[in-house]
Design a protein around this nucleic acid. Sequence first.
DNA 1: CAATTCGTGCAACAAATGTTTCATGGCCGA
DNA 2: TCGGCCATGAAACATTTGTTGCACGAATTG
Lengths: 290, 290
Amino acid sequence: MAEPAKSSPLSELRIALPSLPMRLQEVGRFVAANDYDATTRSMRDLAAEAGADPAAFTRLAKAIGYSGWDELRAALTEARRPSQIAPFSVRAKSRRHGPNADVALVTDKLEAEAAGLPRIPAQPIAEAARALHDAKRIWITGYRSCRSVAELLNYELRLFRPEQVQLVGVSGPDDLDLGAFRPGEAVIVIGFLPYTHASVRVAQAAHRAGATLIAIADSLSAPMAEGADHVLLFEAASSPGFFPSLTGAIAIAQSLAAVTFSLGGTAAKKRLENTEARLAAASIYVSEKG
Amino acid sequence: MAEPAKSSPLSELRIALPSLPMRLQEVGRFVAANDYDATTRSMRDLAAEAGADPAAFTRLAKAIGYSGWDELRAALTEARRPSQIAPFSVRAKSRRHGPNADVALVTDKLEAEAAGLPRIPAQPIAEAARALHDAKRIWITGYRSCRSVAELLNYELRLFRPEQVQLVGVSGPDDLDLGAFRPGEAVIVIGFLPYTHASVRVAQAAHRAGATLIAIADSLSAPMAEGADHVLLFEAASSPGFFPSLTGAIAIAQSLAAVTFSLGGTAAKKRLENTEARLAAASIYVSEKG
DNA sequence: CAATTCGTGCAACAAATGTTTCATGGCCGA
DNA sequence: TCGGCCATGAAACATTTGTTGCACGAATTG
């Protein structure tokens, strides 16, 4: 296995963890999960809380290349030390070129997207959520990269309205679903430039069928926004890079789901609890440990 | 002696400072200025650096109402403890009613997520992108709500590396793919609390096969982060509402794709152009009209 | 099945920690 | 000037710290 850059003692620990004896894995996990206590409290103290032998900590440190627990803790302490000079020094020194050009690209991107989120109009989202709340059935559409947004929305809505939410095109060709739209139902279409023919077709079908059309798009003049009852705007081109940004669309989708759930009241809450109980019973999730 | 509002040990110190003997003032100022070292390093060590007598630290602690240096340090340690994300307090807060309660929920959510994005560590993303660039093949995994993130990443990476990127589990049961992992390949696993067994299985299989493991998770102690060569952290619980937030994970995925594309240089650019040309030829997109 | 390695808990070890005591020296009031 | 007081440093103290040697048991190997 290749050496993956000795960035932090915690990552060294993580990497070595799986190849360690069982007990050492336990204490290793404990250290990773409680690294602040690891730097401040004593070895024996930690051992008592972790329910392990104090010696295990020393052995762990040696197993991952340190001379002893003291040295490991010193490394953790340094890694945790609050950085005195904050973002500007990093930002100024590594613009565009140099070895850190990639890092600069990432920070620029994240900042741009963070700046874009508060510009999303909230009012239309709340109104659209009410429309979803009133809808007898909810269809969701998104193609190409927007498919991920559609699926997330589908997933979250189905957590508390399982029988009434459906992705367009999952159970056969899209066209079969298009004929099923009815008044009183809601159809969500997600898309941005360049717009796919398929998404426009869905929007038109929804409009023609008299269903409530909700468009999540990057522009009011997007073709699937024509005739839409609710248009939720986000900025797809706000961040640097070559692909349009979906962060805004995801944020909208999640807000939409959250408000819709909130409108659902205790009934929605109960259905969510049922769903979660079923998932837990099927032991889908890794149980949390003390 | 009056209790001076036990807000923080540091403020107690500052208040009592002027009425202390000269040497104790010096030591007190040193502690206030280096409180991180005060919690991590030993008393004698600090004394050496401050140029003072070790006993002065004990006397200082007693002078401001503690039983000894140990107790003062414990108080400083607790005051410095990183605030573990408290979703409940956020949820319990201002459950505002009235007509605009829904709008307020949306704006709160968007602002919280916007605040979370710049906190994402950029360096690991850049390093992980380089690993992807070097990988002969890229596998992507995400279950439940993380599936959407996995699919977005899959989509964007396939735009310029179509033959080398694959979602785990699309062409049959996951287990078939798990056996296909090879050294020199990269496996991306996305997940957050509660963690699914399936994602942990994939991560372990990747590690066992000697493939480069990249984990996108909400915690360093996430089970799929064990043994990972790269861990990309985001805050799933940062925003109000009942569902964990995927905005950070999406932002990471997009940054990862962008940097990987950037590393690909002209070759990647050419492949992307080919893909776009093919899509255009199939008239997937609505042509832009004046 | 025997031999051996390896992982693990226990207990004793030396080193380091925080505390206390004691001696010194400066300061102020009588 | 004397005597008490307090601040201060150095050294001795008991305690706690991290470490290591040892024994026992499980897993592995020949």
